[in-house]
Design a protein around this nucleic acid. Structure first.
Lengths: 379, 379
DNA sequence: GTCTAAATTGAATCTTCGT
DNA sequence: GACGAAGATTCAATTTAGA
């Protein structure tokens, strides 16, 4: 059994501001060890997000070991194919189970793979109780062609994003993604070039790692599903793309990697990575990040007078503000949301955008009043 | 046990030209029955290709409404409900095993699904000994948004294409695909709009089937992986998209569908479908060494006259065809691709889909002209 | 009739907080 | 955990209605 060797790129002191349980973690360092063994050394429910790029070589070779640590021999016979899938499944189940143990209740996991392994991984993810949130397609702008012309060009890889369960409250920075995508919802298909050029790590002109992932991919993953200061674990760290991007984005990272050569390359690379400064890290916040303002507060503070008439954009409905911040429209009385839903006959309604007041230059949504209030009162 | 009820759209006589073993099959007709039961009635090793669109096991929760309050019409049909993953897996294994029995040794199978089910389906496909050739991503041009802003927009579905085994000699019409894709290898990600408009089958203004697939998707699937005269089976026939496209492309089809309502719609639809004529069909075989179709070829052969004006979809740009097949738009002159890129200010542009000509019923992409040319001229 | 604005709709695992 | 109220949330392609 190997000893867990920790290879840090920064001292533990830097983690002093982190809360106690997190302080136990080997933050911002690499555990040079077998991935399952290393995960076993981490405390339960301590990780915010896991990004995993597991091996998918079904020839097994020396890449895989069974959960008990024994070696899986390579298989070449057709009759043994089922057995090889079973071995891969056992390996997958073992590391995913450990991942599940160390993830926080509201944590999420990403796994990337190709058609060789992703279906088995996905089924295991579901079997272990994870709740799939999306499958994301990485469309390669410049895939390797199918030289023999025997199939379609294999131009994508698939990522699975899953939470701990159906009810878990995971992090999804919706507003950030929408901003990143030119004010359109970010879709489940992402296009990036494969990792090459200056970004591709090379040693003596030879690529250090065969499957180095582009930083742009990890950038979007981390930006979408983590918050600054979160702890991100990559159990198949390789040359540390996850660590380099995590550092850049102000997230803590932990890498697990068995190969000393990959570890060395990763450390050198991450040390050279420059973190974005605080102002650059600021992203579009979800409205729910802003303090809640009750409609009644606006009335109490004189931003909207009781008796003021409110309208929908087409003036089909007219309502009147009560002294307590309630709204009345015909027989319907209640919150701005409830009355809006009632008069429209819809199950719900955002009263802030539905109701408008009469301004000098036409109708304006009462949400504008709320914004004015927020600007005037927030420090 | 239900009786297999055969619902044909043509007499058996029409199959007389088919070889003996195939003549035993209920060609070009629907078996109104449970899919596993119906497949059991078919002879072993008799089918060239199977396209399957099984239930996705969506596991939807409560109702969903759009931001405007309108109700989203979800898939609530009983046929999509399963008690557990285990139950879904058992169902999947059962129908896939039958599919494997009736496929020829060199046959292939396509299965379409979403993240809800595709990983389980893919793992079972592999477990049964199928050899995955590609996973294909159908990128939806117009997916339904994520109304609540909780995840990435689910903008794609996944198809698995597999042969009977690693050594099987499956059909892949490489040349045809490459020609269809402007002389670039066809990739594993395909973009199509979802099925709507005139193509979407409706009864009394209501969609007949909740998950009708676009014909363009099946067109490419059949064109890529079958030959004229091949027998294509769809065990989850629904409203018969597979049958309609198979008929159009001169392939035999067999549908299995339990719901009488779907069967009736499928028959009516397929009877109305017009097969391409024989000369057009022969082009689908696309011999190796088929000439590249340059835009200029279309001009030379009178498919597009010099001087014809081309437009983008929004008529922001107007260009004129030169006698040599070049395009001119203001100062920009060159190939359809280059001029398209220049006027848009983009690094590249697929001129075939960017530029449109004025047809009687509106603008049509010049790619349509290329299709016409290909159908008419390829040996 | 023609053009433009408005309405409709699609395989969707679709909220969060306080009591 | 159940329940109720507050609050946040949509893109592209058609079709229909209206000017």
């Amino acid at each position: 059994m190997g000893v867990l060797e920790k290879v840090g790129t920064r001292g533990r002191k830097a983690a002093s501001a982190v809360q106690e349980s997190v302080a136990e973690l080997p933050l911002d360092s690499i555990l040079m060890s077998d991935c399952i063994e290393a995960m076993r050394s981490l405390p339960a429910k301590s990780i915010d997000m896991i990004f995993a790029d597991p091996p998918y070589n079904l020839q097994l070779g020396g890449d895989l070991s069974r959960p008990d640590g024994s070696h899986v021999d390579a298989v070449t016979d057709d009759w043994d194919k089922f057995d090889s899938f079973a071995a891969y499944d056992a390996f997958t189940k073992a590391w995913l189970a450990e991942a599940r143990r160390i993830l926080k209740d509201n944590g999420t996991i990403w796994v990337i793979g190709s058609y060789h392994n992703i279906f088995r991984v996905g089924a295991t993810v579901q079997d272990l109780g994870f709740w799939i949130l999306n499958d994301i397609v990485w469309r390669k702008a410049n895939p390797m062609p199918n030289f023999k012309g025997t199939r379609f060009t294999n131009a994508h890889e698939t990522m699975i994003w899953a939470s701990m369960g159906e009810k878990s409250r995971y992090t999804f920075n919706y507003r950030t993604m929408k901003t990143l995508n030119d004010e359109l919802q970010m879709r489940s298909d992402w296009e990036f070039p494969i990792c090459g050029g200056q970004e591709r790590l090379k040693r003596d002109g030879v690529k250090v790692h065969p499957t180095q992932k582009p930083e742009a991919l990890l950038y979007r993953v981390l930006l979408a599903s983590t918050k600054p200061g979160d702890v991100v674990l990559d159990p198949f760290f390789g040359t540390g793309t996850t660590g380099a991007v995590a550092k850049r984005l102000g997230r803590h990272w932990i890498g697990i990697e068995r190969e000393p050569g990959y570890c060395a390359a990763a450390i050198e690379r991450i040390e050279a990575a420059l973190p974005l400064d605080e102002s650059a890290l600021r992203t579009m916040q979800a409205p729910k990040g802003a303090p809640r303002v009750a409609f009644g507060t606006l009335v109490e503070n004189g931003y909207l007078a009781p008796g003021t008439r409110l309208f929908d954009t087409k003036r089909r409905f007219q309502a009147e503000i009560g002294a307590d911040g309630s709204l009345r429209c015909g027989d319907a009385t209640g919150s701005i949301h409830k009355v809006g839903a009632t008069v429209q006959g819809t199950p719900s309604c955002n009263g802030w955008t539905f109701w408008h007041y009469e301004a000098e230059d036409g109708l304006k949504p009462i949400d504008a009043v709320r914004q004015t209030y927020l600007l005037a009162t927030q420090p």
